[in-house]
Design a protein around this nucleic acid. Structure first.
Lengths: 232, 232
DNA sequence: GTCTATATGACGATAGAC
DNA sequence: GTCTATCGTCATATAGAC
């Protein structure tokens, strides 16, 4: 008798589809106009609807940014989970594991510059992601930290440095490559990127510095800071 | 007899002072509202004048950004020239020289986040610095390259890698520290910055990798890229 | 050089009819 | 859920009097 057994779900699904479309178009606009150049009116225009209609799905522009932030982080997490090779099973070197992970990560950021700017820079004055939107971004750090913990368990990592420090320095390295590429040569793709090309060397110096074993760390010298008069 | 021997210069000087004030206030606004949040009206408001008056000094908002870009680069160049210790005279190590230079550079960026975002990121959709505004920024690269060239001459640098590559990787490293600090912990100053604290280690791994001598590069292994199925 | 006045338009967001 | 209409605000930029 009921021709539509779940009419509510149908409507909800339609709603979700529209939301996805809004996000797709928003990313498109951001890629062209810059992250801060996103405008509700422009999104509506491209979707063929009027600006007020968007407010049915997003109560404010900030909410739109928030959803974009969360979706970006989710997409990147998925990419890292999916595309990173499971090198733990084989006896891969630290350098192999890290270069693989770095390539997957950096590739995504270069192919999704709009998301990356939103995720890794601070281009929107008033905007800070909500805790729920930030959650998947935290997962990225967790993933990376677990990888380092696993490497330490396998004896690939120096044991005289905390995992937090290793993790921090690793993010600095990756952020440097991404930042330089997106800021100075945003039109180059992953294969041609001049700063992406620095990845192997960066990973090599990192692995040589933080890797365990006598060959990788020949002379363990303290790297504490010195006070120097010249630096103000 | 002539009480004002150079009245034209006086007027010109007054004009230059006003321009300087505009730039000061503009930086102030950018620091609070974000680089993209700069508005001509807000600058005028804080100066106690009307927006049209600003157009006497800057024909457009882009021209204002351009002047800010140039001034930022000039300030940074001056800082690097002035504050960097002349370690070439003494027989300083590569690590000492680089850590000193890095600290001077990074300190300035942390203490001038608005300039830094304008200089090193791309926060303003339509804006690209004019060639003349870009000139002092180029000088920064030249300065750094000359430093590496000097180190090579003194036998501190590996000779099997081009200076361009060394220079590129160095910028990646510094950009990583600055980018992470400004994006993730913009409220921390230079001394307390958690990513600034990564500098000694980053410099150490760089020096160990690119420094000359048998102790710094124990096992010269090729770091060519491998094609791997997992990376898309 | 500074002002008033204004052109011109975009923006985010809301009210209320359908 | 979508629309028209509109509010209120802000923006960049220009014209022309003083």
């Amino acid at each position: 008798m009921a021709t539509e057994p779940v009419p509510l779900d149908r409507r909800q699904r339609r709603r979700l589809e529209t939301i996805e479309e809004v996000l797709d178009v928003a990313i498109e606009v951001m890629a062209e106009q810059g992250v801060a150049g996103l405008s509700v009116g422009e999104v509506a225009r491209r979707m063929g609807i009027r600006p007020p209609s968007l407010y049915v799905y997003f109560p404010s522009k900030h909410a739109l940014y928030d959803a974009l932030f969360e979706r970006g982080a989710r997409l990147l997490v998925t990419q890292v989970r999916t595309k990173t090779a499971d090198l733990a099973s084989r006896d891969a070197s630290m350098e192999e594991i890290l270069l693989d992970a770095a390539r997957v990560f950096v590739r995504w950021t270069i192919e999704h510059p709009a998301y990356s700017q939103l995720l890794f820079w601070r281009p929107v004055p008033g905007f800070e992601p909500s805790p729920s939107a930030y959650a998947p971004a935290t997962e990225l750090v967790t993933l990376s930290s677990e990888r380092f913990a696993a490497m330490r368990d396998r004896g690939l990592l120096r044991t005289d440095v905390s995992l937090d420090v290793v993790q921090r320095d690793w993010t600095v390295l990756i952020a440097g490559v991404v930042s330089q590429q997106l800021a100075n040569a945003p039109d180059e793709d992953f294969e041609r990127g001049r700063f992406v090309a620095a990845l192997p060397a960066m990973v090599a110096m990192f692995a040589r510095y933080y890797g365990a074993g006598p060959t990788s760390v020949p002379r363990r010298r303290a790297t504490r800071e010195r006070s120097r008069r010249s630096d103000r």
